[in-house]
């Protein structure tokens, strides 16, 4: 018989809940149906903590923390929705829109995009900051997939899923600061990278239109993060999945 998981009392925005002692604020909030916006976090993958969308405030502590990387603690007082947090999240969303070329109207994932959803959630009706209009080279060398770094938010889900779940480690981040860009292989065209297994997990988990199937038109691309989460969770637990279940998810 499995041991029962220990629990702790926490509060989210003034409401008391029970959380598992060994889970993160993010996992607890998801389980309890409390919406904390996030982009780089993906259940089953290692925690990256880079997008900073999920910052929360613990009691009166002025140092905000990412929910994804903060373990719950007994009697933790978690605030997820203060005016200050809302302002920060909106600003971060604006920063993401301003640094890339996120033209929803012509994007393959228009209508199926986590970044677009976050913009709605955070109330971003315009971007206060100057658009950077980068001109990064699109990699269409892979026969099946396409990578548009201008739509990439450097969440590194692709890096992590490829390394941790598929075990191929095709993806990596190169350069730094605003030049930081995702690269395949040793910064070579994706189509020439032999270690790529064409599994498509990177494409499945991309929260924006940066990774897509070839030949998709505006709004035609649908990511399948749910399949990867199922795979990753099952793998972490050492559990087998019925192929029929996966087929159905597809």
């Amino acid at each position: 018989m499995r041991e029962r998981r220990a629990t702790v009392d926490v509060s989210f925005d003034g409401v008391e809940y029970e959380a598992y002692a060994d889970e993160s604020v993010m996992d607890a909030s998801r389980r309890l149906g409390i919406g904390i916006p996030s982009l780089c976090y993906l259940e089953g993958l290692s925690v990256w903590g880079g997008c900073r969308m999920c910052v929360v405030q613990i009691a009166e502590d002025h140092r905000l923390r990412p929910a994804c990387a903060t373990p719950v603690a007994p009697d933790m007082e978690i605030h997820t929705d203060t005016p200050q947090l809302r302002a920060h999240r909106k600003a971060i969303t604006e920063l993401l829109f301003a640094e890339g070329n996120h033209v929803c109207a012509v994007c393959v994932v228009n209508g199926n995009c986590e970044l677009q959803d976050v913009a709605v959630d955070t109330g971003m009706d315009h971007v206060r900051f100057d658009y950077q209009s980068p001109q990064r080279e699109i990699d269409a060398s892979h026969p099946k997939y396409i990578f548009d770094p201008n739509r990439c938010i450097v969440c590194t889900r692709c890096v992590r899923v490829c390394h941790e779940i598929e075990g191929a480690h095709v993806w990596d981040v190169a350069y730094r600061g605003s030049e930081a860009v995702l690269v395949t292989g040793m910064n070579q065209p994706w189509g020439t990278v032999d270690s790529c297994t064409w599994c498509g997990k990177c494409v499945a988990v991309c929260p924006t239109g940066a990774l897509a199937y070839q030949g998709r038109a505006v709004g035609e691309m649908q990511h399948q993060t749910d399949i990867v989460i199922r795979l990753a969770m099952a793998r972490n637990k050492g559990e087998w999945i019925d192929p029929a279940e996966l087929e159905e998810m597809r």
Partner: peptide
């Protein structure tokens, strides 16, 4: 700071530029 940002987190990577 903009030049030396590692690019991992959004506020530093994109915020310093703005």
């Amino acid at each position: 700071s903009m030049d030396e940002s590692c690019g991992k987190c959004t506020p530093c990577r994109a915020g310093t530029v703005q």
